[in-house]
Computed example of a mutant assay.
Amino acid sequence: MATFTKRGDGQWQAKVRKKGYPVQSKTFKTKVRAEQWARNVESEMDRGVFLSTSIAESTLLSELVDRYLTEVAPSKKSEADIKVRGKLLKGKLGDRVLAAITPLTVKEFRDMRLETVKGDTVRKEMSLLSRILKLAQQEWDIYLPRGNPVGSVAMPPKGKGRDRRLQSGEQERLLREAKEYGGYIEDLIHLALETGARRGELVNLQWANINMLKRTAILSDTKNGDDREIPLSSKAIEVIERQPHHITGFLFPIRGDSVTQAFSRVCQNAKIKDLRFHDLRHEATSRFFEMGLETMEVSAITGHKDLAMLKRYTHLKAEDLAKKLG
């Protein structure tokens, strides 16, 4: 049964009561719209398909993002990146209630962001928005009347993967400046080139997981969630042997962001442009193939489960292939 009450501000409040359902109420500027809404609600209740949109109509996206950052993000390895993207979503769309976020809203957000950042960045931002809205529906019992609007909007095309490799003379300059810079950065560069390990895997490597007799190391809690045992070359053993044992048990007691900062300064001092620490993983992986290792052997070292993803790391130098061809 629906009732209608005229409020002091000239608006009309509609209330629908039906056994088995919580009371539904909503305020409108005219009685005609209030009656129309009430008829729709009663009809859906009669047919057993009614789902309340009240939470979606009263919850701001900023509130949902905050909940995701508090309850979900801390369990993710990419928590820091998620927080940055979450802050951006709050700044651009946070003042909208969930029910007002439509495919057009998402499309306008996508196009606006593409004016200032690359497509891959926008893809990650849209993906985070989609994950948050999906979780709201599946786990937080929030009914979105239009479903997940991100799914109706085309993602920007994937950008070309980086294929930056060390050029002639760059490794020597890089290591020279790293030695001059001091700290752990020189040996981190050496070990990255010898193992293809990620920055996070190297700074989380502990002495307890290194077997000098077997010449292996276990990388724990890697990007894909699994531990990985990797072989250690003679050069890698040499680098490890000269490290002092720290009370923390870590081979390199240094934060990942400190590694990035040091590497950036070393590159600047070496006058090397557009080189990131992660590019050393790409360089190492490519070198494994140039040594003659098979795809599955390289995968066992680098931890790539998607061989298609591994393929983009195999940018073998044309001049080296020419020598093999004779």
Rank of each mutant, 00 (worst) to 15 (best):
I254H: 09
K87A: 14
E172W: 01
G151L: 14
E71C: 03
R173E: 00
K31G: 00
W37G: 04
E186W: 13
K18D: 09
E115P: 01
L205C: 11
E42I: 09
T314F: 00
K76A: 10
E44L: 12
C267A: 06
L129E: 07
M112N: 12
G147S: 11
I189N: 00
R255Q: 14
D163S: 12
T216L: 04
P253Q: 12
P74R: 08
K158H: 08
Y21T: 04
G48M: 12
L51K: 15
A236P: 07
A270D: 01
N204D: 14
L280W: 02
T248Y: 01
K214N: 02
L104F: 09
S168C: 00
L188H: 07
W207T: 04
F288L: 13
R281N: 08
L280Y: 05
K317F: 02
A208Q: 14
L188D: 04
L280G: 11
E229Y: 01
S78Y: 10
R165G: 08
I237Q: 05
R228Q: 10
L191Y: 03
K124W: 01
Q138W: 05
G94T: 04
I301A: 10
V153P: 09
D227I: 01
A308K: 15
I301G: 10
G326S: 05
E71S: 03
K26M: 05
K124C: 03
Q13R: 15
A192Q: 05
D120C: 03
L64S: 06
T27D: 02
F277G: 08
P253V: 06
G151I: 12
Q261H: 12
D221T: 00
A322M: 13
K214H: 08
D187I: 08
R312W: 05
K29D: 13
K305I: 05
I185F: 00
I272P: 09
I247A: 14
